[in-house]
Design a binder for these strands. Structure first.
Lengths: 303, 303
DNA sequence: TTCATGTTCTTTGTCGATAATGTGCAGGCC
DNA sequence: GGCCTGCACATTATCGACAAAGAACATGAA
């Protein structure tokens, strides 16, 4: 099978939600922007909908015949791009189960295990290698460097450098920069989640991602912005399988974020730096605490 | 053609230089370490040498029959790994000839132009994307962001952050760390090249690379060390096609390096920071001066 | 004129196949 | 016992093929 038609299936599912009986679907180009796909894909969707009896399609008219049933939707797992499937499987393996540093990773085995071709796995590994967790031995296997305390420390050290720089740049943004509006939007979102923290603490991850990305962007430096991808993916997967103390941890972090945001709004560099350092230190602590203790890490160094 | 046999050809050429008439080649495992390839490849080389009448091979004895002639060597271009060929062609195109930001890059066209399969090009682009010069539009083409002044500035900003951090870490290395020995070796190499600067100024690139890598390594941070790859590749290709003022530029830089090295040897943080800043500033200047003027860069922003 | 559709063509993402290269094991020489 | 060779096997690097997705252009309706 050459290409998965996940783009088609996902867009089809989203298009189903646009159906309103009695009305007509918008024009093809309009559907393109709405669904974020090309016209070719839109037309495939329309054809498929005709076959399913969902619409009647004649040139400009695309009259909706019946509301979509549950069975009209493609199962969700069929809509995930292959690259994401591979990423998830892989991350699960190395951040969860026994993945010790020095482990050899072989493309063929991984491919067989996930049930995809070697090319896809290979390309994933190349893309993933920029995160510093694996390394290639040319003409041979990949080596896992491991998500160790050492790794976490190196990651966080750079993060701190970059975030401090970005935060300092943030206060110098012109007053009419959209970032200020977005910052206020984010502040409110924080307040809302905080008000109902017991049931909504899991939403913190998303707020965290948005706030930090907004700040990194102020640096105007692509390397700083791109580096945040590494942090994001590591934190994302790590905490996804490591939910101990999540409620307290997130509650505390939201308060820190609010302080941080307030500090940014004062535009006083010292206040910003203080709030930033405080929050970063606490993020460092909670990541380090959730990792296996140093004794193990020491043993790893030997290999 | 599945795999190029560049590994074989390159190792064969290098092995030819080991031939001494009347003697026997060392054991297979020994040749492996000598040539840096597997035993399978070594055995292919030996077989080929037998066919060429260069040696007689019987179990442990590999008696050399005649010295290698020029015609025994594979032409050099056949020994370049495919990935390097692609890299060179690509860099030539984007750092030299009219490669404006926003340019669409398509895999198929590149592949045809270089005369390789799309997979190889694709993998190269994925690897290369970490340098921040190109960006992928999924299911569609790549976009060239361009080697602009903006790019150079972002690159150098991060470089300065990292180098200052690394240099600071360097002075704290234990006295018996091998880096100190290597630093001395490098110092002497600098002095030697300087003594004959008029004819050897081109050797500066290599010294530069070695010195800065040595320093970055002191940071003990893989992200800092890895980042140097970006700097190295950009400087490497850029100055390779931009040799104006190379003699003066390099002469000046060598003097700065020597100051920098001396400062490191004093282990005085302030001295190191001063020398480091001085050198980085001058590196920044010369890179920026060799780029097209800001007027052009401004026009690029519009697109 | 402007925008939507019909049609055709190009390019991407993924696979399987295959030579090059690497790796492991059994037996043999010192 | 320790290293070397012979041999069989596993994995990687690369290609070509092909369906999915995108892009270009001519034609036609408002």
């Amino acid at each position: 099978m050459p290409k998965q038609n996940t783009v088609f299936k996902d867009a089809y599912n989203r298009c189903l939600r646009l159906l309103v009986v009695g009305e007509s679907l918008p024009s093809e180009p309009e559907l393109c922007t709405l669904l974020g796909v090309s016209r070719t894909t839109v037309r495939s969707i329309l054809s498929q909908m005709v076959e399913a009896g969902l619409i009647e399609w004649n040139k400009r008219s695309k009259a909706v015949q019946r509301p979509p049933a549950k069975t009209d939707f493609f199962p969700e797992h069929e809509t995930n791009p292959l690259s994401e499937v591979i990423e998830r499987t892989f991350m699960k393996r190395i951040l969860m189960g026994g993945a010790e540093p020095g482990l050899q990773i072989n493309e063929l085995e991984l491919a067989r295990e996930i049930g995809v071709g070697t090319t896809s796995v290979r390309e994933f590994l190349i893309r993933f290698s920029r995160f510093g967790l694996i390394e290639k031995r040319p003409n041979s296997h990949w080596v896992l460097k491991g998500f160790t305390r050492q790794f976490a420390e190196e990651l966080i050290d750079v993060r701190e450098m970059f975030e401090l720089k970005s935060a300092a740049a943030f206060v110098n943004l012109p007053t009419d920069d959209p970032a200020w509006t977005e910052l206020e939007v984010l502040r409110r979102a924080h307040v809302e989640v905080l008000a109902d923290i017991d049931s909504r603490y899991l939403e913190f991850s998303e707020l965290d991602d948005r706030l930090h990305r907004l700040i990194q962007q102020a640096s105007g430096n692509r390397f700083i912005v791109d580096f945040y991808d590494i942090i994001a993916i590591v934190f994302h997967y790590h905490y996804q399988w490591n939910k101990s103390n999540a409620r307290e941890r997130n509650g505390k972090a939201i308060l820190e974020h609010l302080d941080y945001i307030e500090a940014l709004k004062t535009r006083r560099p010292e206040a910003v730096e203080a709030a930033c350092r405080l929050h970063l230190l606490s993020a460092r602590m909670s990541l380090m605490q959730s990792l296996p203790p140093a004794a193990l890490a020491a043993a790893e160094v030997v290999q």
